[in-house]
């Protein structure tokens, strides 16, 4: 990833939430940073291309639109690549991570309703022979406002 200058860092730090809803939001960001709208857009394009950001967009509160769950599977090490690829191919899976534990594959399934989520888990169980743990959110104790970055 190319090095980030002070303006890139400010773009990443200051706009993780509260993105403007006015007609020209990138111009508003530019005004706050002292750069042109076109510069904001080309920097965000570059940050997205380099993988520093996944998108400029919304984080939807879990359970408020459609249904979702966190699932965990205990996958034999030799089958991890194969099963991770199988799970990543579902369009309803939007996070899929390895974690260091007996339950080593973790993913989030999001669909229009709870029955559709259960259908995906059932399908995964029958295709892999491994039953996922179903760990839906029951209560949230933290409001996610983004993450304060510390630049060394």
């Amino acid at each position: 990833m190319p090095p980030l200058d002070a303006i890139d860092r400010a773009l990443l730090d200051r706009f993780q939430s509260g993105f403007p809803l006015d007609p020209r939001p990138f111009a508003t960001l530019g005004a706050a940073l002292g750069i042109a709208e076109s510069d904001v857009l080309s920097r965000l394009d570059a940050l997205q291309a380099s993988g520093a950001i996944s998108r400029v967009g919304a984080v939807v509160a879990p359970g408020r639109a459609g249904a979702s769950t966190l699932a965990a599977m205990a996958v034999p090490e030799a089958r991890l690549d194969e099963i991770a690829a199988l799970i990543s191919a579902y369009s309803s899976v939007n996070h899929n991570y390895e974690r260091e534990h007996r339950f080593n594959l973790w993913f989030v399934v999001t669909a229009s309703d709870a029955a559709a989520v259960q259908a995906v888990l059932g399908d995964i169980a029958s295709r892999t022979g491994i039953l996922p743990l179903d760990l839906p959110l029951l209560e949230a104790f933290h409001i996610d406002l983004g993450f304060p970055l510390q630049w060394n």
């Binding site: 939430s17 993105f19 950001i53 400029v56 919304a58 939807v60 406002l145």
Partner: peptide
Amino acid sequence: VIKRLGVIV
């Protein structure tokens, strides 16, 4: 419903 709108790092 929208928890936050912004740059997703």
